[in-house]
């Protein structure tokens, strides 16, 4: 028993579990929209672009979240604009701009001496390094995103299913799209420390994709996605303590496992 409770004895692990819960819930909730609006490439793009912001903040001694947050939100709004007005395809824009932003981050970082260690933690996350003030930020941003989803729920649902008819009926579809992209940017910033730039897209997509397999209505899909997300982050963190592996990678592997279990269960139910 004491062995099982071992991870909870350390203050840094307790913080990590709280942060992981928030990240798991919020990523998979937003992931429901990401899946249904087919935004997963955008999520990946925002995460990579925000790396430039992280590095600039790091070099100037500013807050990690501030740098990442500003760049992520600007990027998200920029995508929304290109998406609406664009003569260039969204894929191309993301492919060009975000790899460019990411390269800028690597370029600035590589001019520093001790960049190898830090780079690793940005790319793959280090939830065990969450400080008390980070935790407040993570919780605060998560609550803001959660409340916004609740308040805008019907409009977000309608504009996700049918933005054109929603707009014809008097709902401001573009405004909802921008709001969603900004929330997505904040979610990604919150998740960066937990799973890192490379794996954040997985946390957005995988739990929601697993939930999609097992549900036939929107609200149950979102609830099940949140459950899968929280189970993945909490379970992954817990397991990583015992197997002495990267927490971010363990979390994503667990989410992936849940996804395949969901597919298996779906086929079993059909049979």
């Amino acid at each position: 028993m004491t062995l099982l409770l071992d991870p909870f004895h350390y203050a840094f692990m307790q913080r990590a579990f709280v942060a992981a819960l928030a990240v798991g819930l919020i990523c998979s909730t937003m992931g429901t929209y990401v899946i249904l609006r087919k935004l997963s490439f955008i999520g990946d793009g925002i995460a990579h672009a925000s790396f430039a912001g992280i590095v600039i903040a790091y070099l100037r001694g500013a807050n990690f979240y501030l740098g990442a947050g500003i760049v992520a939100v600007l990027t998200a709004v920029g995508i929304g604009f290109v998406h609406r007005r664009g003569r260039i395809s969204l894929d191309t824009t993301i492919g060009v701009l975000f790899t460019g932003m990411f390269a800028l981050g690597v370029f600035l970082m590589s001019q520093q001496r001790s960049y190898a260690v830090d780079l690793q933690s940005f790319l793959f996350g280090d939830i065990l390094a969450v400080q008390p003030q980070d935790l407040w930020l993570i919780l605060g941003l998560s609550i803001i995103v959660g409340i916004t989803v609740a308040v805008l729920f019907r409009g977000l649902l309608y504009t996700t299913f049918d933005p054109v008819v929603a707009q014809a009926s008097g709902i401001n579809s573009p405004a909802y799209e921008y709001a969603l992209l900004v929330m997505l940017a904040l979610t990604i910033v919150v998740a960066l420390q937990a799973v890192g730039i490379v794996l954040v897209a997985a946390l957005l997509v995988t739990p929601a994709a697993a939930a999609y397999q097992l549900t036939s209505r929107f609200s149950p899909m979102m609830a099940l996605a949140a459950l899968f997300g929280a189970a993945s982050t909490e379970g992954g963190l817990y397991l990583s303590y015992y197997v002495r592996a990267s927490s971010g990678a363990t979390i994503v592997l667990l989410a992936t496992l849940l996804f395949f279990l969901a597919i298996g269960l779906k086929h079993l139910r059909r049979a």
Binding site: L36, F161, G170, R217
Partner: peptide, 22 residues
């Protein structure tokens, strides 16, 4: 106009029917 005044029915291909909804 106030919301809801005009109802527009597009061609059915306009949406993704695999959306989780009844």
């Amino acid at each position: 106009l106030p919301p809801g005044t005009i109802a527009y029915v597009p061609q059915v291909e306009a949406v993704d029917w695999s959306f989780p909804a009844t």
